[in-house]
Amino acid sequence: MLRQSKVRSLAEAVSLINNGDTVVVCGFNLQNKPMALVREIIRQKKKNLWLVTAGPSSIDADQLIGGGCVRKVASVSISAERFGPIGPCFRRAVQQQSIEIWECEQGIMTAALRGAIQGVPFVPTVAGLGGDFVKVNPDLKVIQDPFEGRPVVAVKTIKPDVALIHTLIADEFGNARLEGGMFFDELAVRAAKKVIVSTENVVPTAVIQHEPRLTRVFSHMTAAVVEVPYGSHPTACHGAYTFDEEACGEYIKAARSGPDGFQEYADKYISGAPTQMEYLNLFGVERLLNIRTKVRVGDI
């Protein structure tokens, strides 16, 4: 019998996500965000997700919120660097109290994911001491260190059902490399019950075997592999392309103008472009070629 390939279409991969799931998204701000998966989640109208972002997030979280997929969000920040200090859909949802917030900062998030990795119900950390997080998040409690009596913060474990990651390469069995910034991605994929890998290129396993030290998503963690060129666009994919300034700016401007602006954007770039090829054609070859990475780590 042959080892089974986990290569799936975008639609098949995202159909593994259930309404109400806890979904953790990899990447950092405008870097390495699994945007093609995000758009497909919106197209499939997933509902009531608990959206967790392993690191700071940007238009990934903002689009999922704007798209009506999110019931509750845990993210250390939802911004867009210089394109906007905050995600517009996120701000509206919070100010209209239409979304639940699991308030945290990065040390707290790290502890919550480590709990799932280690299979423990909570993780003690110093992160959160002195801050107001414990006042507004019932999953954080200041407890006494049972040995030395000092205060520590007990962070209730977050157990994501699914992790979403976009990588430069992966093989058909779901082994994937972290070649650029590692961010919090290893924590997210190890905390989740299953991982959906989208990747620029599905490569022969021999390529993965050539440099096993770079494999940080192991095939046993992975439920599906989707080949999606420019799958992080308009954010960056480390080693392949940088973020698309114009496209990020266009999104923030549209979303900031109000729910109608977001809807117009979604009608054009999300529901209006049901496949990645149709999405990419909206930008054209020249735009996509211009953001390519010229020099790779190890080249110089």
Binding site: P56, S75, V76, S77, I78, S79, P85, I86, G87, F90, R91, V94, Q95, Q97, E103, C104, E105, Q106, G107, I108, V126, A127, G128, L129, G130, G131, D132, F133, K135, V136
Partner: peptide
């Protein structure tokens, strides 16, 4: 503060979130 202006439950202005700010104090 990077979280909100006003009451946390009903903010007059929501900020981006705390990033790693409670960790920086260490």
């Amino acid at each position: 503060n990077l979280v909100c202006l006003g009451d946390w439950k009903k903010p007059t202005l929501r900020g981006p979130g705390s990033a790693g700010l409670n960790t920086v104090t260490f």
